[in-house]
């Protein structure tokens, strides 16, 4: 049986890992590669590298390369600035296992299709930041700071074997003291046969426990929380009941692999 996943997320701005508050305010945390190494050591199931300021600059290839070469053996998801097929290929060749697209789903669906056909839909994820206004939900466009209605065309594109999973982001709760992922988002599911990764405001293991049991939720992503609490990942995973997730003991430190820095 395939396990559901607990993903450690690292938000990166100006090359630094940051604590994000609703993607509006940021506090610096340090080198992203160090945080990735820690998440790897603590046994998260995947690591999401979320570069929030890439925009027109393209993906941060040197960062993903640095993280991959640091000896991280946890699967890496990269998000930020992917606008072409070649961007996706380069990021994967430098160390990412999966890539996330967002704005090109609005701007150029053909490019999204081209990426999917080249890297395979299993390696492609779409991110949807969601704004909740009363009972209505909108796709939030960070760049232009506008809320976009979900068109049937967009829903059809996403549902048609383009991507493997959707990251649903409760961006207004991200980094907020108001705990929990809002239920309005969870009831929203126009997409056929696509599983969700939930992100934003999922700090307490109790909330995670409830969310991860949902049928169409394949993973939850957690950001700041994992870096601020002792044994956070282990405690978090332990508190999720049942056999939904991988709980195998992580032995990285015990087996004592040494990283050899060979000269080419």
């Amino acid at each position: 049986m395939i396990n559901k996943r607990v993903i450690g997320s690292i938000t990166i701005k100006n090359g630094l890992a940051v604590q994000s508050f609703g993607y509006k305010n940021y506090l610096p945390m340090g080198k992203p590669e160090i945080i990735a190494e820690n998440l790897d050591r603590w046994g998260v199931d995947e690591i999401l590298i979320n570069c929030v300021d890439r925009g027109e600059n393209g993906p941060d290839v040197s960062l993903i390369s640095k993280i991959a070469q640091s000896g991280v053996t946890t699967p890496l998801i990269y998000s930020g600035g992917i606008a072409t097929k070649n961007d996706a290929i380069e990021v994967i060749s430098k160390g990412a296992d999966r890539v996330v697209i967002d704005s090109i789903l609005h701007k150029n669906k053909n490019v999204a299709r081209e990426i999917s056909e080249f890297v395979g839909c299993q390696a492609l994820i779409a991110a949807i930041p969601i704004t909740v206004k009363g009972k209505s939900l909108f796709w939030y466009n960070y760049k232009d700071k506008e809320n976009i209605e979900f068109s049937q065309e967009l829903i059809n594109t996403i549902s048609n074997n383009l991507i493997s999973e959707l990251i649903l982001i409760d961006w207004e709760r991200e980094g907020s003291l108001k705990e929990s992922f809002r239920k309005e988002i969870l009831t929203f599911n126009p997409f056929k046969k696509i599983n969700f990764i939930l992100f934003g405001g999922i700090n307490s293991p109790k909330t995670a426990n409830n969310l991860i049991k949902m049928k169409n939720v394949s993973a939850i992503a957690v950001g700041n929380y994992f870096s601020y609490k002792e044994h956070a990942v282990q405690t978090y995973k332990k508190s999720i009941s049942g056999s939904f997730i991988r709980k195998e003991n992580y032995e990285y430190l015990k087996i004592g692999y040494t990283y050899y820095d060979f000269e080419d």
Partner: peptide, 19 residues
């Protein structure tokens, strides 16, 4: 063949002592 996650693989091979 320019379709692979080569950097990750090389990094893991280094971890187990293989160039």
């Amino acid at each position: 063949y320019k379709c692979g996650n080569i950097a990750s693989l090389q990094s893991s091979l280094k971890l187990v002592g293989h160039r």
